[in-house]
């Protein structure tokens, strides 16, 4: 049996390599024109997507609106500027598609509050409308940038085990905070007792997944609403977007999609912080 399989494999291999073989190839397929997958070169979908469009995603400082206080430019009221940090250029809908942001859950698990963000279903798998998602993501990134610019603290929250490492790494990279472990009740609502002293709470919470480990809504969403902290959250088709201040409809399970969100959030925060430094230097 093993020898026969080896012979089959060998015949296929030889056939593919362009040499002749006396062994008969497999019945249904005589030759395979497909390229062999090269897993070394592209470690993930996200990597290849970003590598292809790297030049587009980088916002150059010359493309940004003028900084405040420059001698030859009028002073810009930052909050009146529609896109002060250039977040609209951070990503394209095509990149979102390639990272699988459009993929939702099966039709039966749909939370009816998510209906308005859905494009349709393909063989009972729900598909997000990425044009809507892009609008909401751009709004969320803009607000996140403004809060970072003002020196606010961002807390990334994700209870998804397979994605928690990259979320923590993102928080480290942009100098912010992450909470990806068991959420002790009262972390926000009873912070003085939990941490043993007056505590500064975060100014915005970013949820890479609004579910906890048992697929119920994360407690931090209600906690943030109680202590009046706005939230940004990726909401999948089985989530409730109502209490999220800036919801972003999209896939919250696939590592490629999470890598995409982490990349844009990180870039937006880093850009905003850099912008703050530049503006302060201009003023002084």
């Amino acid at each position: 049996m093993l020898a026969r399989r080896t012979a089959q494999w060998l015949s296929q291999y030889l056939h593919r390599a362009g040499t002749t073989s006396t062994l008969q190839p497999r019945r249904h397929v005589q030759s395979l024109p497909l390229e062999q997958p090269n897993f070394r070169q592209s470690s993930s979908v996200f990597d290849s997507v970003i590598r292809e469009s790297k030049d587009q995603t980088v916002v150059r400082s010359s493309e940004l609106p003028p900084a405040i206080g420059r001698a030859d430019e009028p002073i810009v009221d930052i909050l009146k500027h529609p896109d002060y940090f250039g977040v609209k250029k951070l990503f394209t809908v095509k990149e979102m598609f390639q990272c699988g942001v459009h993929l939702g859950h099966m039709g039966g698990t749909l939370n009816e509050r998510m209906q308005q963000f859905i494009f349709g279903k393909r063989f009972n798998q729900l598909i997000f409308d990425l044009d809507i998602t892009a609008e909401y993501l751009r709004d969320a990134l803009n607000v996140l940038s403004h809060i970072s610019y003002r020196g606010g603290i961002v807390l990334f929250v994700c209870r998804d085990r397979q994605n928690c490492h990259i979320v923590e790494q993102t928080a480290i990279d942009c100098g912010e905070y992450a909470h990806t472990r068991y959420w002790t009740g009262g972390t926000l609502t009873d912070a003085t007792n939990i941490f043993g002293g007056a505590t500064r709470l975060p100014d915005v919470l970013v949820f890479l997944s609004t579910m906890n480990s048992i697929l119920e809504q994360h407690i931090a969403i209600e906690s943030a609403a109680i202590v009046n902290i706005p939230t940004v959250g990726i909401v999948d088709t089985n989530c409730n977007p109502n209490l999220i201040t800036y919801p972003v409809p999209g896939n919250d399970d696939s590592p490629s999609a999470i890598e995409f969100y982490c990349h844009v959030f990180k870039t937006a925060i880093q850009n905003a912080k850099q912008r703050r430094l530049d503006d302060d230097r201009m003023k002084s």
Binding site: L79, D139, I147, G152, D203, N228, I229, P230
Partner: peptide, 12 residues
């Protein structure tokens, strides 16, 4: 709060 003006300028 720090986010108050931002929310007012860019409401969801």
């Amino acid at each position: 709060p720090l986010w108050y003006d931002v929310y007012e300028a860019f409401p969801p």
